[in-house]
Amino acid sequence: MASIPPVPRERLPALLRAMPKAELHLHIEGTLEPELIFALAQRNQVRLPYASVQALREAYAFTDLQSFLDIYYAGASVLLHEQDFYDMARAYLERAARDNVVHAEIFFDPQTHTQRGVAMQAVVNGLYRACRDAERELGISSALILSFLRHLSEEDAFATLQAALPLRERFIGVGLDSSELGNPPEKFERVFARCRELGLHVVAHAGEEGPPAYIRDALDRLGAERIDHGVQAIQDAALMQRLAREAVPLTVCPLSNLKLCVVGDLARHPLPQLLAQGLKVTVNSDDPAYFGGYVNDNFVQLFEATAMDAGQAWQLAVNSFEASFVTPAQRAPWMQQLRAVFERFARAA
Rank of each mutant, 00 (worst) to 15 (best):
E10K: 13
P13Q: 05
R17I: 02
L24P: 08
G30K: 06
P34E: 02
I37Q: 12
L40H: 02
A41P: 10
A41H: 03
Q42W: 01
R47H: 13
Q54P: 01
A55M: 10
E58R: 14
D64E: 14
S67L: 04
I71E: 01
A76H: 07
M88C: 14
E94A: 04
A96Q: 00
A97K: 15
D99R: 00
N100P: 02
V102M: 00
A104N: 02
A119V: 07
C131V: 12
L138T: 01
I145H: 03
L146F: 08
L149I: 10
L149A: 14
T160F: 02
T160A: 15
A163Q: 15
A164R: 05
S179V: 14
N183Y: 09
E209F: 10
D217F: 03
D220Q: 15
G223Q: 11
Q235L: 09
A247E: 13
L255R: 15
N257M: 07
N257E: 04
C261T: 05
V263S: 07
D265F: 05
R268Q: 09
P272Q: 12
Q273M: 04
Q277I: 01
G278P: 08
P288E: 06
N296E: 13
V300P: 04
D309Q: 14
W314E: 04
Q315C: 05
Q315L: 09
Q315W: 02
V318H: 03
E322Y: 07
Q337E: 12
R344A: 15
